[in-house]
């Protein structure tokens, strides 16, 4: 799907051969990956080299289990949902560092270090925004955060707190893009500078695992944005009973995935639209702009609650 969106932005058709408009291209890619040779380069730490994709893949899987897809559709409804997501997100950095270091390649090492520095930096603003959501919803359980947005479209967290909600949503979007190492924040694997970044030396299925982890992270981050800001599985009611009855007839899962797909589409649009900043610009942006803005946002949110309850 990524390549399709990319192609359309660049006025191309994208993959067309397999299935209807190239819908089963992904399956073909997986089969191709399976038959590629798997080997570790000389001097690589073999155990660490094969362990890294494992660790990278674990993190998005756990987040997946925490997201509520429907009213009774959640795999693990834990009370400490959001802190757990933050903890698990930190896990992914470990895998990337491990993968970069163990390949015995300078590009990999530099890519991994940059990626690590970037991910942990943006993780802070990511955490801060989730803190803001926790503050206005008064819960860390993802299910009750969703249910707190019951009502019309204006009760979603993005609209409920005037201006602040939208600012928080935009900040969340930026920091989650950086958190996932996606363009325009993909200095970790900037092709022109570092060939492939931390997975330069990977090939065959372990490489496919890194790729898979990246795309599952895309889906889970979109799902998280949907849950925290866009009302999760709740339909976008507008307060008119006639319309709302029809909207309520559609099951929540459908609404959820519609919103998730919308978010994924947004991420892809951003990826293929903006240029990549330099590594120092990126770090400056996080520490000298995003972090102070986040603190101000948190303080304003607190003031809002104190004054208007």
């Amino acid at each position: 799907m990524e390549r399709k969106v990319c192609a359309h932005i660049q006025c191309r058709l994208g993959p067309m051969r397999l299935g209807w408009h190239g819908t089963i291209q992904t399956v073909a890619d997986v089969i191709k990956m399976l038959f590629k040779e798997v080997y570790a380069p000389s001097g690589a730490d073999k155990l660490m080299f094969y362990l890294a994709p494992l660790i990278v893949l674990i993190a998005p899987f756990i987040v997946c289990a925490l997201i509520p897809f429907g009213r009774n559709l959640v795999v693990a409804d834990v009370s400490m949902g959001i802190p757990l997501i933050i903890a698990v997100n930190g896990f992914g950095v470990l895998g990337i560092l491990l993968g970069g270091w163990s390949s015995n390649n300078k590009y990999s090492l530099l890519g991994a270090l940059r990626s690590g520095a970037q991910m942990i930096s943006y993780e802070i603003s990511f955490t801060m925004i989730l803190l803001f959501v926790v503050m206005i919803s008064g819960s860390t359980n993802l299910m009750s955060i969703t249910l707190g947005q019951e009502g019309t479209i204006l009760d979603w967290w993005i609209f409920k707190i005037p201006v602040l909600g939208i600012v928080a949503f935009i900040l969340f979007f930026i920091s989650s893009t950086a958190e996932m190492n996606r363009a325009p924040f993909d200095i970790a694997e900037a092709e022109q500078e570092l060939t492939g970044g931390y997975h330069t030396e990977y090939n065959g299925t372990p490489f496919a695992m890194f790729y898979l982890a990246e795309y599952i992270a895309l889906v889970t981050n979109s799902a998280l944005a949907t849950t925290c800001f866009l009302g999760g599985f709740l339909p976008p009611c507008i307060g008119v009973a006639f319309v709302d009855n029809y909207l309520n007839m559609v099951p929540g899962v459908v609404w959820f995935f519609a919103k998730v797909y919308f978010m994924i589409w947004c991420y892809m649009m951003v990826r293929w639209t903006f240029v990549r900043p330099r590594v120092d610009q990126l770090m400056d942006f996080e520490w000298k702009f995003l972090l102070p803005v986040n603190l101000v946002l948190l303080a304003t949110g607190a003031a809002y609650i104190v004054i208007w309850g």
Partner: peptide, 21 residues
Amino acid sequence: FLFLGAFIAAAATVTGLLLGY
């Protein structure tokens, strides 16, 4: 779920090692 994620990655690596050119 944690083990599922690890298992999928491990299984894929092993399949790659077995089937790979």
